[in-house]
Design a protein around this nucleic acid. Structure first.
Lengths: 247, 247
DNA sequence: CCTTGCACCTCACGTAACGTGAGGTTCTAC
DNA sequence: GTAGAACCTCACGTTACGTGAGGTGCAAGG
């Protein structure tokens, strides 16, 4: 009759201290059925057997791997293949990391912009721009971009945007001075622009196609995040077209 | 009197469709005070003004950055510095990514082990070991150890553990026989122990320092995964100390 | 005039994994 | 015998809503 065995067994407080969880947690685990003490004393106090202790160790281990208590219960009760469960969970965690990374990238870009002084309205437009990216690039492409971005670091990304801004200003200068887009003075600017675009696409034609579609369909000011307007954009397109094919 | 203005203003359903949130969400935002409609119709229907619409766009934008509604409310109401808020949130997100990544690494290692066939008990000891390792070894050191382990293969690792077990038993024999730790009969055991430790550290002094710190601070039985207890450990230390310096 | 149907309303419970009391009982040591 | 530690059972609070339940307001059709 293990349910009335008072001579041995752990009481909640001891078990809690021994395993690093709280008494409340053990209560909770009982109510949801993930760890039911194998006995009670006459006074109604919980009594945990050694088997309960071992089960608790496993619960804590799986919990620290980020699994839900419901999953833990299934895994322990149904004797599921632990390897398969862990592999599935690994996939889950990796996806969540990707999502967090995408979020981190968005925040990082916003923060670099914030140093130039960002208003709440800018915030809205910037986030809309990010949502726009998600409409034109596939998930894989966005992940590739995120990784590349990650390797470069926030500074380099900020410098690139700053360079685009200067490029745009220079192009506008030439345009307003009436220079032809194929003029020798414009050529280095176009060449640098082509390099920057190539750095973005990584030379991947599919990536380039996505970028093109985005620039074709969306408002130039929005898509370039205010770096250039439609006029400068058109001027740059002509300058790029006048470039010899191999860079 | 905007609170009775019925001629203009958005009703919940329209506003919800326009912004991509649900009606229930708008109800919720009102109860927690993050977006209170600026008016009601005579029948008690919510009426949102254009200012409410703009506020909702901001709320959604900040929400998609992973901020809590309470934070959003503070940020929008107190006119807090958006840049500072975003930077703080970025730090928060980066920390959470680091935690997830550490978790991913643990899971990945467990999965590779699972292919060799892992029991739930192994899981517990392995996870405890990993948690302990992470407190004493740097990330680089752990990667180095993982590679070395991988190259050796599971068999070699098992043999090493078996050898430690035999070493511990032999040391315990000498100890209980009253032999001095510096006795000639103990010397070859200590020398072999030193070789095994050297194989673990790969001769790296920093790795050795980390290992030392771990053995100094943790319970001998736990850290050696049950191979030796505190007494045998102390005996081995004295035996190692009695060894000539160059091996 | 009545019904159908849609948009709207206000409760109010459920979610995950416990934290934090509240109020009462039992065990243990002095 | 009594103090204090340990135990017990409710039961509400946390996040950001989802999901009905049951009722009202308003326009169109029969």
């Amino acid at each position: 009759m293990p349910s009335t065995d008072e001579t041995s067994g752990w009481r909640v407080g001891r078990l809690a201290r021994a395993t690093g969880v709280t008494v409340r947690t053990l209560h909770h685990y009982e109510t949801i059925g993930v760890l039911v003490p194998s006995g009670r004393s006459e006074a109604g106090h919980r009594l945990y057997a050694d088997a309960d202790l071992r089960r608790l160790y496993r619960i804590v281990a799986l919990r620290e791997l980020g699994m839900s208590l419901a999953q833990i219960r299934e895994t322990l009760d149904d004797g599921a293949d632990l390897g398969a469960v862990l592999r599935a969970h690994l996939v889950h965690v990796e996806r969540s990391i990707d999502r967090r990374r995408a979020l981190r990238d968005r925040l990082a870009r916003l923060c670099t912009r914030a140093e130039e002084g960002i208003s709440t309205d800018d915030l809205v437009t910037t986030i809309e721009g990010m949502a726009m990216h998600e409409r034109y690039f596939t998930k894989e492409q966005r992940e590739t971009l995120a990784r590349r971005w990650d390797e470069l670091g926030g500074d380099a990304v900020g410098r690139t945007e700053e360079e685009w801004r200067k490029l745009a200003a220079a192009l506008r200068g030439h345009m307003e001075a009436g220079d032809d887009p194929s003029a020798p003075a414009v050529r280095p600017l176009a060449q640098r622009a082509r390099e920057l675009v190539r750095a973005f696409t990584g030379g991947d034609p599919a990536m380039y196609a996505s970028l093109e579609r985005m620039y074709q369909n969306e408002d130039p000011g929005t898509v370039s995040r205010g770096v250039m307007d439609g006029e400068v954009m058109a001027y740059l397109r002509r300058a790029l077209g006048a470039l010899p094919h191999a860079g």
